[in-house]
Design a protein around this nucleic acid. Structure first.
Lengths: 200, 200, 200, 200
DNA sequence: CATGAATGAGTGTTCATTCAT
DNA sequence: CATGAATGAACACTCATTCAT
């Protein structure tokens, strides 16, 4: 009943994905993972050199995609490409939709279940990206003072990202997912200036 | 060097507050807390009978305030008090502002760092409260279909609560805090119907 | 040097049996047991999920036999089976002889070394059983007053059980054991009325 | 609210006596003792240099009495004083009655609650004393073989001592106590030879 | 390749004992 | 004399990791 190497590897990753998502990285044990995979503890270590390495096997692909977004976005900024906020919205929505089609659970684990690992900063990096664009494209035009606009940018970026992750978590049908993401965009970003009119 | 009792107790609470906030309840050890407090492990147990009891010492006061909000809100609903969404906004904002004047870190720990403890449901209870009011008072009037409105209510409630917590986390001057909370309210709840106009 | 699983398990049980017997359950530590077994603390927990579970591994079989005696005896009483005291003596002696052939130390640990565990009542249950039979079958016929007869029943039952346990502890040859148990019975229960004659 | 030294000392001893008797030496903590005495932990150590020293304060007087019995008895044997078994019974009964009048709880603690301390052998010493006299004065005359007689002597001595302790534990009125001890003597030692008649 | 027994450092917790006040 | 805060070694138990087979 020999199993092919790659099959076992995928088996481990699949079990770990389930457990990391349900219990979080810290609370899922190697024993849990081995048991769910139907193999022994020692054998897990033939495929992955540590527990953190199992996590890497799960989130690294989506992690790289996110790093791509981040550096692509930074490049645009450096080039002074004066994309509008709407363009940015479209780009990031498309990215998120594409990523979550391929790596739903992986993205959620990376962004919400990796406290205590080297990945725990990536969520903040994403927040920063969104924050900058919101600040420049959205709140500067509003009646908000500079300081308040900056802070609200950070908060809204954080909230928007969390909301996106909740949607990805709650919906796995692609059409529905896409629709809900656009509703979310409308909720967060339409008529922003108008909302603060009364403050004048 | 002997130190007065209350001083040590506050010292432990202060260290634990810092560590629970930074690492979460589960990942902060009694040894960490003792070390940061400059005392020994055994001595922590002279002041608190268990690790969970240290947590209680930190969050219990704010926990009770939150339970008050929840039962007060439930009572209003039972009485059929037809308060408008704006009224609800005002009530909850006032509560939050008052609570966070006294307990900043405590509230943040209670709502975001207590996974695995008896407090882990409190955040969801608060989200539920907000979610119901948003759903009834806000999204039903919009062009959103019932299903989407319900889901968005949950997401927005979650995001709004997190945003509040971020503000409390980032601002400790009371005037600033209050101002920012009202800006946040404008951002989340003004002209909601208008945002979805284009979907008609 | 790797050892076979069952060998280690038996090794742990054997070490624990020795230590529980010598020091009592509470005073024997898992570290003691591990050390005497030539393994590490953690490895003990591969075989037993708790210290109490090690105790169970030792005494559970004999515990069940004793529960059998107790319920069998209760059934006889309920059925009103008017067995004579001699019949009872024979039944209980046979039970004890059979049990101690298989489980010597286990019985001794169960009855004398389990203070603070869930087994701590079993000895008193056995004493009660013997006490009732002694009282009804033996001392009521004597010249003793009711109160003294009752108290002596309790004392004699306690002493008889301890004496049995001492015999089991001191003899491991089956023929010898059986012979000694019958001598013990003669010592405790023959001519009981006669012993109190002078009190008339 | 200063208390005289000796008063405090007696207070501690009294509390410890209660607790050692109820929970056993190992399970009673210095904190328990201090609390029940209405003083602080540190102050206990002004009167007794260790927990074991508190125990000594309680049981040492009765311990010495018992050592007296033991050496007195040994002297009689060395002198070849051919006291009869009945004489021995009388002597030991008198001793026990006198001791338990003065030191009821102390005797019980010494003989039944000192596992793990330096006193844990004293009970066996007493058993040995009784055992020798029983063997020489009682069972040698019986139809029992030498080996069985010797073993039964040990068992009966053990049982007799335990029974005595149970009586002391259960009765605190002196007349009642004395009466019950004599009943116990009758039960254990009257017509011993007759009990084994049937074995001929 | 795979096994699973074994390790050892770490967890929360208790308690006899010490010592600055 | 008395206090009670502080210590530190010990406890039962867990788990990522290693390694002989």
């Amino acid at each position: 009943m020999q199993v092919l190497k790659e099959e076992v590897r995928q088996n481990i990753l699949s079990s770990a994905k389930k457990l990391f998502y349900e219990k979080g990285y810290a609370n899922a044990t190697i024993r849990d993972i081995a048991k769910l995979s139907g193999i022994t503890v020692g054998n897990v270590y033939r495929y992955f050199k540590s527990k953190e390495n199992v996590l890497e096997g799960i989130v690294e692909p989506v992690h790289e995609k996110i790093l791509d977004i981040l550096s692509f976005s930074e490049k645009l900024v450096e080039e002074g490409a004066n994309k509008s906020f709407t363009d940015f919205r479209n780009i990031i929505n498309e990215f998120i939709i594409n990523i979550s089609k391929e790596y739903r659970l992986e993205l959620l684990i990376l962004c919400t279940r990796t406290r205590g690992t080297k990945y725990e900063t990536i969520r903040d990096d994403l927040v920063s990206l969104i924050e900058n664009r919101i600040h420049q494209g959205l709140f500067r035009k509003s009646v908000l003072e500079y300081k308040e606009a900056g802070f609200l940018s950070k908060i809204a970026a954080h909230a928007f990202l969390d909301s996106l992750l909740m949607i990805i978590s709650g919906i796995d049908e692609n059409g529905e997912l896409e629709k809900m993401i656009y509703i979310l965009n409308d909720f967060y970003f339409n008529h922003v200036e108008l909302r603060f009119e009364a403050r004048k």
